[in-house]
Nucleic acid binder design. Structure first.
Lengths: 249, 249
DNA sequence: CGAGGTGTTGAAAGTGCTCAAATGGCGTGG
DNA sequence: CCACGCCATTTGAGCACTTTCAACACCTCG
């Protein structure tokens, strides 16, 4: 595994303020708190493949993704990798480091070039303590995040491979449009496969099946959807909520 | 489904205070707050099979389990039931009602006779706002709970049916003893099966396999474990943490 | 006793996985 | 510009595990 690929980057001050201020999770920060965050924070550029931290590392920072894609994962005793989540812009990770003896509870790796904002865990902790509105935001975030995991479990057990891929594609679609949508798969198919708890071979075959059943067109990472209704009928029938379920961002 | 079986019960004042005070989640309540909780709370007896609430019901209360077993579940569009969790003494549920538009995000049913403490959601909300230590406790709880779901996902994908049952049994075992442990399965096998995301038939067969592989003895709901090491070697090899992993209560 | 719930077993059908091999794109060194 | 090697992806064949459908044993309750 590649460990290099980290580079501290200077973001323009105004850009950083705007970015942080507009994150839902930080919208309850006071002006002073926001200033303090901006001061104590640092932006880091991580190139595709580089490891951000490893499970059990001392957790001094949690992160906000400015752009790019980051994979959270654990390794099992028999050496396989379990992908917990794959996140992008505006998502935060390692925020549970306030607990867990200040150790990271999983590992994180950039799966596409990314810029991430490192925020001291101590600052997170003290702000939670001092600003009840922020504490409530964090709690809402945690609750959503737990809910997201619950939906994940439902998907794994109730949907077959083709339906899970369909569901994944649906979550990439803009909500306003119904017909002739084109989306790009955001990262490579091997990773999508493990994100959806299946093998690459199964992914490939299930995508063929999905193509047959829903008349979507796939060329490389480009996906064309003529009619989103057909796709959601096929994918969501085994699930507890219909498209757009809105549960997983 | 049986809807009856709810009965308000009077718990002795001292008993209630002691119970609430000793819950980890409430240990940061001040004396005044504790008094207020005890005043606003009500104990409810729910008999086996009775439904506590249904998804989308208006959520005015969340619950703490005094004793018994409660199942949380959702129903999928095609009519099958997805079990989210099965909880017992000292666990809380529906605490995410502070968000979600004050609606329950799943349904809850007693699967064994139970006594549960109903706490007004409004009280939870205001206490989070007023007591940062309590807010932090709630946050820690949410974080643990999310982690628990993550382990669940790992189990479903990495362990086979027999290993999942082994893991379930291990979590019933007291931590101090290593040899000649006897445990009772806490609720019926059909429910354990769906809790572990498998069919009853699969459960039955996988339990036979587990018996062969680990020399545990099972008679009805009674399980005898000669050597916990053999059981954990078999069950935990596909997982990211070895017994006692301590992740799922 | 009969009904219904719970648990077990058998046989057949899926579904996804493993292992192996082929394909195709793409960047590097010549 | 081309050959090469690497990597991502696809395809094939066979296998392992879980589910499905059916039947049956057992127990409890009315």
């Amino acid at each position: 595994m590649q460990i290099s690929g980290h580079k501290s980057v200077k973001l323009e001050y105004g850009v950083l303020v705007e970015f942080i201020k507009n994150l839902p999770i930080f919208n309850s920060l006071s002006k002073d708190e926001l200033a303090r965050f901006v001061k104590e924070v640092s932006a880091v550029y991580v190139s595709k493949g580089s490891v951000i931290y490893i499970e059990q590392d001392k957790a001094d920072y949690f992160y906000v993704i400015k752009n790019g894609w980051v994979k959270l994962f654990r390794e099992t005793l028999d050496g396989t990798e379990a992908v917990i989540d794959v996140l992008t812009s505006a998502h935060i990770f390692a925020e549970d480091s306030i607990f867990n003896d200040e150790k990271y509870s999983s590992s994180a790796q950039a799966v596409e070039d990314a810029t991430i904002i490192a925020v001291p865990v101590a600052l997170l902790k003290s702000t939670i303590y001092e600003n009840p509105a922020f504490a409530t935001s964090m709690l809402a975030h945690m609750s959503d995040s737990r809910r997201k995991r619950e939906m994940e479990i439902e998907h794994i057990t109730a949907q077959n491979a083709a339906q899970r891929i369909g569901c994944f594609i649906l979550r990439l679609c803009p909500l306003e449009i119904e017909k002739d949508i084109v989306v790009q798969l955001p990262y490579d198919k091997v990773l999508i496969a493990s994100r959806l708890n299946m093998k690459p071979e199964t992914f490939s075959r299930a995508l063929n099946k999905l193509r047959e059943k829903t008349s979507i067109k796939v060329v490389g990472s480009r996906v064309e959807i003529d009619d989103i209704g057909v796709l959601s009928d096929f994918s969501c029938s085994a699930c507890s909520s219909a498209y757009p379920c809105g549960d997983l961002k």
